[in-house]
Each structure stands twice: as structure tokens, then as C-alpha cells.
Write a protein that binds this DNA or RNA. Structure first.
Length: 900
RNA sequence: GGGCGGUUAGCUCAGCUGGUUAGAGCGUCUCGUUUACACCGAGAAGGUCAGAGGUUCGAAUCCUCUACCGCCCACCA
């Protein structure tokens, strides 16, 4: 074995071995497995590259999958990629413009989509190889892409079903429009940026009113006031002629509670076509619409001389003209407000009226085949209620719990979901319209056909729009398993067990999956939602290219190894809490990986030296630690102690992992591995001989326990341990604790010995006794005399003591450094080595410290309320501590007396 | 405007349903070439648990308020 672990040399090869073994496919796993454990991998964008967020989700999910696989379940981790309609569309649009100097319109739809597909095909492999780099043990044989024919069929099937149930409808409504993407956006795809703008106070007929968007005046059809506002009460219902830059126009005054009487003058202009609030007011009062901004974000023909200007340009021009006409009362600077921008491209969103497809979240329908808690088949229920009830009933559990609140609040405010997009890349909407002549009648229901396949006969043309990416993503947990076909996979692996993803896509995706799955299957998509935090840099900033603080996981892998990167994501984190990443973390993790490597190296090599006869096959047969119990090797206290600790660690780690607390699991394991095993037991094995087999057993166990965290190094060590024919660690059984090896007595005794050793080391260090210097030690052990006697070889070896003298009572040792641990008195006669004054000061300090502690205890014990109200065992504990502390003080004082 | 999270050692964070002389890792200091590891070992220093009230025999932990940092939602036109 190399002196230091070199991840780079072996990782790719190990991954290939795993992949070739076929065990990523749960159906190929050995043994009888009856239970499923399924994770649907949140599909990265097909054209993306691995970033810190992906790396985190892969680390967590692979840990869960490897753990469950070892537990004996059919562990399926289904990978795939997403076509990410808008993102990919925008990327290729830019590329085409750069390379061919053409817009997509100039290129034409067919050619443009071809360009996208070429781009996707050529860059799709990148992310997949990077997912492999992380060590992800996902089943590539089941890999899916959201635009695969089967998944497209699922999309069309779902759409048709929902349309037939009346849950999908076509409506003319105001929508979020991104002029850059040339498409609608769902409400949650809109982000807000703060901007310092101006508030324009307009002279508006009989009103003076404030607006941030004076250019929309061209589309005004009303003025709204708060119903009880005295200033305007008499005007409600009346019509007024308003002078404007394009001549007079008429508005009606309406009363509506949506108006805040404290804002501006209490009267607002209503532009139903270009504001959500105004749209809603207009709906309530049956006000006319006047669209003045088109889909390019420019003023329309009906805006006279302003036609063709962008809204920003139009604002300036109109304000200038209004000033000339004396229509501006005044302009207020420094008005902060939020700008709606596209979450993909950052362009300004224009609210526009448009005919689009929507999912009705409030309409009740008859649910079929319900497997949902408290919901019967045939019951009338809305999608919104489904989303609420599945979580409220506890059938779906969200970790951490506090996101329940966030989730419910989002649903409460949910409006109908606009699902049509005017981009060319994506799932075509399975709706066809009867072709009409220019002057045929308005379109009726008869002229629309919705179905899984195109309608038969001529004269139909398909809706040119595509579906929101999240529509197909919403089907992900079951479309990837074969739905709408009734497949074995769907039957066995669905509902999936855990959905592990970032809290940032709780709405985008998690909620949509719940909606889509409960509707389609009458079942939940997953039992548990585990939400991880977002990755930040060391200054708690988001990682972004413009800040230059992006960490590339592949560089980290290259520098420190995949296992180190994974550990950095798994230990020291809390679910739902953002996590900071920086170099020191990777270094620490890499150091631990190397520590494990060297622990193994020591065990393997000392094993070779001590017991050359021990063949790999012999080792394989010793899988049960229980069998060791009767062997001579198990006779020492240290053996009983380490096995007790090991078996308790198994129980704790298993419990932690079952609770999704892998951070705690990792910390416990590290404590055992580095603290107990490496720092103590391995050192002891240098003085207590013949620990070959027991060490090997421990190593085998911790390799298994660590494997889900750091699969590469553990698999590599495993292969060295067992030779080529030894099989893969990946499919070993998860360790089961042997409770017969728990030993409170061994742990208590060993702790005392350990404390004695630590105390001696401390005394040596404080008195600056060179480590190489062998010293004499006098111990008054009291009741622990036999224990100390039996373990004196450990004390001598680990504390570098040459001679240990056990006495009944300490004589007057003038030149000794002294300490008391658990009633055991320790004297180091250091003669000329010791600085007596310093030692006195040290002892006085310690006595003082103890006296303060004792005072606290006595105080407590003098409190009658404590004695009567606190649990008896706590009172007893306090009493014991007080006695022990008194004893200790007494002994230290005696020694102080001797020194004086 | 509504909601959520954070505030514990120099840094990053654990501390669950109240009882530990408040923990870990990193960093710092001292010492160390003991043949697994200097990507290491031994030892140490370092915290009035953001602040103020309250509940309790007992609060980092529960309640109220305040401050600061961060996030989400709604959106005022």
C-alpha cells in the first residue's frame, strides 16, 4: 500500500468495476430482496455541467442509496436529464446568433429545433460523465430524458386526461410575459428586483393620482378608489373625460377594496391589460380591456406616435409630452419598488392579456383509484386540496418540518397555473385546431381537439405552443417508471421513498410532482421530502460567475478526491440550512480519508507481519465478531472496550442514518475511527500482541459503515483486504450490532485507565518533561487497585512510564507533580525536573477551581426546592459529585502541604 | 406588509422533547523524526451560549419583546 492515498489513480477504475458489475440495477442484486427503496434523481439540465448543487445532491442521494442497498433492499436510483425548455432554448438562441448571425425567426422553427437537438446531443454526455465522477451508484440502464418518446407519451396522456376532466382549459387572461424569451412564465418563474424609480403624480381629469408607469395611461379604462373613501364617494359610478397625450379618453370610477386609500391620493388609474391587480379589479367591475403593449414589449399600433417604442422609451416620451401639456402635477424621486424579471434571463416582465392553457387548481373532479390517506375513490376534490391533504395527513413527510408551513402558504396563494409557452423546444401541446377560413365564425369547443394522438383527417393544425418544463418534470417519479403503461417497475418502485432536493425548488418541482402524481395515480409520488440547503461561499454569498466565487466540483475532485468532496457535503450540515464551502473543508476531509487509509495500511501490514498464515479466505470466514468472543485475543480490557464501542457505534450510526441525520452519523463514525480506534486501540495493539484478527474484523466493519460516505477509498481498501476474489464492498451487508458485546463495565474501566494516562501526559507536558524521558510513577488506586495493576502495561507504554509503583498510601513525596482522577492519586516524582513553585501555583489554581464547583453543588443541595422537586437520581448524582470533589480537594491540599 | 431561519470558542458548526464544570472540526500556542499516517502524534489556551424580561428547584434549550444578518412570499398602482 502507498504511504498516502491517491484518489486520482483509482477512482475511475473503481467506478467502472461497479458499473460493470451490474449491481447499480437493483434487479441484479444478489440475495432475496423484497423491499424497494427508490430515489428519482432530480434531473440536471441535459446541456448543463456539474455544479456544487448537483454535487451535493449526488453525495446525499448516493449515501442513502448505498446504505439501503447494503441493508438488503432493492435500491433503485433512477437517473436522467431534463430538457429545460426555456434555459436550453435561450442558450441555443444566443449561440445561433453568435455563430450564424441569425435570429431564431430568421432560421425558422424546424431548423432552429434541429440546432437545439444537435446541441443537446453533443453536450448531453458531459453531465452524465460528471455524475459518474461523483461515484453515483445510479441505474444507468433505466436512465431517462424528459423528451424520450415514452415520457412524451406520458405528457400527452396526462394533458388529455386533465383536459377531459375539465382541469385544463384555454383562457384569455393576463399572464406574465417575458419579451426576451417571447413566452409566458408561471407566477413562480417571476423574480423581483428592487429598483429606485420615480413616482409620477398625474393631473388626471378631476383627479390627481400617482403612478410608477405613466406610459400605461394609454391603456386606462377606469379609476378605482376605496369604497368608503369620502373624498371620492360621490364620484363612484360616474364617467369622466380625461385629457391625455393622444387626446381625451373616458374612464369610469369604480369602488374596490383592493385599493389602498393611503397610497398616493387614494385614487388609482386602472390599466386592466397590463397589471394583475388592475386585471382583477376589471374582472370584478366588468371593465373594458385595452391592450397597448405587444409581445415584443413595445407599444402597439393603437399608441399613435409612440407605437414601436419600448415601454421605457415610451415612458420618457409620454412624460415629456405630458409636461408640455401641463398634465404632470409633480414627480417624486427615490421611489423604491420591485421590478418583475424573468428568472431565466433577467428581462423585464410585462403583464399582458393573452390566450393560454391553464391548469385549474380549484376545480373539483372525481379522483380515481385513491390510495391517499383520508381520500376515497370517486370523491370530489380539487388539485389544491390534494396538494394540501397529502402533506397534512402525514402521508408525505417534509424534512425539515418547518417547510410544511412554507408549502401550505404557497398553496393558499396559488392561482391557476399557466402551462403553455411560446417557445419552440419542448413538449408540443397535444391540442389541434380546425383550420378555418379568414371569415369563419369564432372558434368553439368543436374546433378544438385534444388527444394523445393527432386527430384523423385533414384540416387540423396543432397548437404551436409547447408545455412548461415543469409539466413534464411533475410526472418524473412515475413517467420514468413506464406510466401510462402498467409496468412491473411502476408497481414495485412507486411511490418512491425519498425526494431529495434543494428547498429552492419546493414550489417549482416538489409541489408540482405532488399535484401531478396524486391526480394521475391517486397516490403520492414519494414518502419523504428531504430538503437540503443551498451552497454558499465562505462569505455566505451565492456562487455566481460574475462574483468569481464559483467552486468547480471537478477541480475539487481532481485536487482532493471525490470522497473528500462528498464528506464535505455530508458532515457538519443541517437539513434545510445553507452550507458554506471552502478549501479548508476539503483539506480536512481529504486528511480524514488519508487517515482511514493509513489505519488500514497499519492493520493490513501488521497483520501480514504477525500472522503471515492468515489467508484472505480465512478472513472471509470470520465475519461474525461473536465468534471472537471466546478467543484469547478478547481477553484484554482494551479488546472488550473497543468491541463495546464498535457495536454501540453500529447502533447509533444506523439510527442516525434511518433518521436522515447523516451528519451525526459521520461525526460518530469519525470519533470512533480516529479517536477510539486510531489514537487508542491501534497504539495498544503495539504493546498487546496478537490482535490481527480482531483488528481485521473492526476494519471490515468500519469500511462497511463508511462506504456510503466515501465509496471509493473504502472499496479500494476492501479489495486489498480480500484480494481479487473477495467481492465488492458495495453489496456487502450492513453491519448488525452484537449486543452481547456491549460492556458498560469495560467502558467504565477503560475510561479510567485512559484518563490516568491522559493526566500523566498532561503532568509531563506542564512540567516540560521531554517525551523521550522515561519516568517513575506512584499511584494510590484505592478500590481500583486491581484494575490499575492489570492495565499497568498500558499506562507504562502509553504514558512513557518506566516504573509504576502501586502503594496503599502516599508517603511524603516532596518533589512530585500530583493529580487525582476518580479517586486515583497520581504522583510523578520528578526530582530536579520539577519547578516546585510552578507546581504549587498549578495546584492552588486547581483547588480553587474545584472549590468553586463544589460551592455550586452545595448551594444546589441546600435548596429544598431542588431536593423535593428534582428527580431523585439527579439529586443523588449531585451528592456523589460533591463527595468526590471534596475528596479530591482534600488530597490535593495534602500534597500542597507536603510541598510547603 | 406577512412568514421563516440564523445569532454558541478566532472561523465553520453540533447541542432533539429544559438538569453536561457547554461540545466537535479547523485555526492558535507548546512539545515531538515512538517503523500506519507530519494529509501525523501528545498537551494546552480559548465561550457571562446576541440583548432584556419572564416561566421553573434548574434555561444555550420554553415564552415575550428588542437588535443585527440572511432568505421566502405578497406586492403599493
Amino acid at each position: 500500500m502507498e504511504k498516502a492515498y491517491e484518489a486520482k489513480k483509482i477512482e475511475d477504475q473503481i467506478y467502472q468495476t461497479w458499473e460493470k458489475s451490474g449491481f447499480f440495477n437493483p434487479d441484479k442484486l444478489p440475495g432475496k430482496r423484497t423491499k424497494s427503496f427508490t430515489i428519482s434523481m432530480p434531473p440536471p439540465n441535459a446541456t448543463g455541467t456539474l455544479h456544487v448543487g448537483h454535487a451535493m445532491m449526488l453525495a446525499i442521494q448516493d449515501l442513502l442509496i448505498r446504505y439501503q442497498r447494503m441493508l438488503g433492499k432493492k435500491a433503485l436510483w433512477l437517473p436522467g436529464t431534463d430538457h429545460a425548455a426555456i434555459a436550453t432554448h435561450a442558450k441555443v438562441e444566443r449561440l445561433v446568433l453568435e455563430k450564424e448571425n441569425k435570429t431564431r425567426q430568421e432560421l425558422g422553427r424546424v431548423e432552429f429545433v434541429k440546432r437545439i437537438e444537435e446541441f443537446v446531443n453533443q453536450s448531453r454526455g458531459t453531465i452524465k460523465s460528471q455524475v459518474r465522477k461523483m461515484g453515483s451508484s445510479c441505474d444507468w440502464s433505466r436512465e431517462k430524458y424528459t423528451l424520450d418518446p415514452e415520457l412524451s407519451l406520458a405528457v400527452r396522456t396526462q394533458f388529455t386526461k386533465m383536459y377531459n376532466d375539465g382541469l385544463i382549459y384555454r383562457g384569455y387572461r393576463i399572464v406574465n410575459w417575458c419579451p426576451r424569451c417571447h413566452s409566458t412564465l408561471a407566477d413562480d418563474e417571476v423574480e423581483y428586483q428592487e429598483e429606485q424609480g420615480k413616482l409620477y403624480w398625474l393631473k388626471y381629469g378631476p383627479f390627481v393620482l400617482a403612478t410608477a408607469r405613466p406610459e400605461t395611461k394609454l391603456g386606462d379604462t377606469a379609476v378605482a378608489v376605496y369604497p368608503t373613501d369620502r373624498r371620492y364617494k360621490s364620484m363612484v359610478g360616474k364617467k369622466y373625460k380625461i385629457p391625455g397625450v393622444l387626446g381625451e379618453f373616458e374612464v369610469v370610477v369604480v369602488a374596490d377594496k383592493a385599493v389602498d386609500p393611503k397610497f398616493g391620493s387614494g385614487a388609482i388609474k386602472v390599466t386592466p391589460a397590463h397589471s394583475f391587480i388592475d386585471y382583477e379589479i376589471a374582472q370584478r367591475h366588468h371593465l373594458p380591456f385595452k391592450q397597448i403593449i405587444n409581445e415584443e414589449g413595445r407599444m402597439m399600433e393603437n399608441c399613435g406616435k409612440y407605437a414601436g417604442l419600448t415601454t421605457r422609451e415610451a415612458r420618457e416620451a409620454i412624460v415629456a409630452d405630458m409636461k408640455n401639456l401641463g398634465l404632470i402635477d409633480h414627480i417624486e424621486d427615490g421611489y423604491d419598488h420591485n421590478l418583475a424579471v424573468c428568472y431565466r434571463c433577467g428581462s423585464l416582465i410585462e403583464p399582458l392579456p393573452s390566450e393560454q392553457w391553464f391548469i385549474d387548481v380549484n376545480k373539483k373532479f372525481k379522483i380515481q383509484n385513491s390510495k391517499l390517506k383520508g381520500i376515497k375513490s370517486g370523491q370530489l376534490i380539487s388539485l389544491k386540496e390534494l396538494m394540501q391533504k397529502t402533506v397534512k395527513s402525514g402521508q408525505i413527510e417534509i424534512i425539515p418540518e418547518r417547510f410544511n408551513k412554507v408549502y401550505f402558504h404557497w398553496i393558499d396563494n396559488l392561482r391557476d397555473w399557466c402551462i403553455s409557452r411560446q417557445i419552440w423546444f419542448g413538449h408540443p401541446i397535444p391540442a389541434w385546431y380546425r383550420q378555418r377560413t379568414a371569415n369563419s365564425e369564432p372558434r368553439t369547443a368543436k374546433d378544438i381537439y385534444v388527444g394523445v394522438e393527432a386527430p384523423k383527417g385533414d384540416g387540423w393544425e396543432q397548437d404551436p405552443d409547447t408545455l412548461d418544463t415543469w409539466f413534464s418534470s411533475g410526472l418524473w417519479t412515475f413517467s420514468t417508471l413506464g406510466w401510462p403503461k402498467k409496468t412491473k417497475d411502476l408497481d414495485f418502485y412507486h411511490p418512491t421513498t425519498v425526494m431529495e432536493t434543494g428547498y429552492d425548488i419546493l414550489f417549482f418541482w416538489v409541489a408540482r410532482m405532488i399535484l401531478m402524481t396524486t391526480y394521475a395515480l391517486g397516490d403520492i409520488p414519494f414518502e419523504t421530502v428531504y430538503l437540503h440547503g443551498l451552497v454558499r461561499d465562505e462569505k455566505n454569498r451565492k456562487m455566481s460567475k460574475s462574483l468569481g466565487n464559483v467552486i468547480d466540483p471537478l477541480e475539487v475532485i481532481n485536487k482532493y478526491g471525490t470522497d473528500a468532496l462528498r464528506l464535505s457535503y455530508l458532515i457538519g450540515i443541517t437539513p434545510g440550512q445553507d452550507l458554506k464551502l471552502y478549501d479548508e473543508k476539503f483539506v480536512g476531509a481529504r486528511n480524514f480519508v488519508n487517515k482511514l487509509w493509513n489505519i488500514s495500511r497499519y492493520i493490513l501490514e501488521s497483520n501480514k507481519a504477525i500472522k503471515p498464515a492468515l489467508s484472505p479466505s480465512a478472513l472471509l470466514r470470520t465475519d461474525s465478531i461473536e465468534r471472537q468472543e471466546t478467543r484469547s485475543e478478547l481477553q484484554t480490557l482494551a479488546d472488550r472496550w473497543i468491541l463495546s464501542r464498535l457495536n454501540k457505534t453500529i447502533v447509533q450510526v444506523t439510527g442516525d442514518l434511518d433518521n436522515y441525520d447523516f451528519s451525526a452519523a459521520g461525526e460518530r463514525l469519525r470519533e470512533f475511527t480516529w479517536g477510539d480506534l486510531a489514537d487508542w486501540y491501534l497504539e495498544i495493539s503495539k504493546v498487546e500482541n496478537g490482535k490481527g484478527e480482531i483488528l481485521t474484523q473492526i476494519l471490515r466493519t468500519i469500511l462497511k459503515l463508511w462506504h456510503p460516505f466515501m465509496p471509493f477509498v473504502t472499496e479500494e481498501i476492501w479489495s486489498k483486504l480480500n484480494g481479487k476474489s473477495g467481492g465488492l464492498l458495495m453489496i456487502e451487508n450492513w453491519p448488525v450490532a452484537d449486543k452481547k458485546l456491549f460492556s458498560e463495565a469495560a467502558e467504565k474501566d477503560f475510561d479510567l485507565i485512559r484518563e490516568i494516562i491522559t493526566t500523566i501526559r498532561n503532568l509531563r507536558a506542564e512540567n516540560q518533561v521531554a517525551p523521550a524521558k522515561k519516568i517513575k510513577l506512584i499511584i494510590v488506586a484505592g478500590g481500583a487497585e486491581k484494575l490499575v495493576q492489570d492495565q499497568s502495561h498500558l499506562i507504562k507504554f502509553l504514558a512513557r512510564v518506566e516504573e509504576l509503583e502501586l502503594v496503599k498510601k502516599a508517603g511524603k513525596i516532596k518533589t512530585a507533580a500530583t493529580a487525582v482522577v476518580n479517586g486515583v492519586e497520581i504522583y510523578l516524582p520528578l526530582a530536579d525536573l520539577i519547578d516546585l513553585d510552578k507546581e504549587k501555583i498549578r495546584l492552588v489554581g486547581e483547588v480553587q477551581n474545584l472549590e468553586e464547583y463544589l460551592a455550586g453543588l452545595r448551594n444546589k443541595l441546600a435548596n429544598n426546592n431542588f431536593l423535593t422537586k428534582a428527580p431523585a437520581e439527579l439529586v443523588q448524582e449531585a451528592k456523589d459529585k460533591a463527595i468526590e470533589t471534596e475528596e479530591k480537594i482534600k488530597k490535593l491540599k495534602e500534597q500542597l502541604g507536603v510541598l510547603r
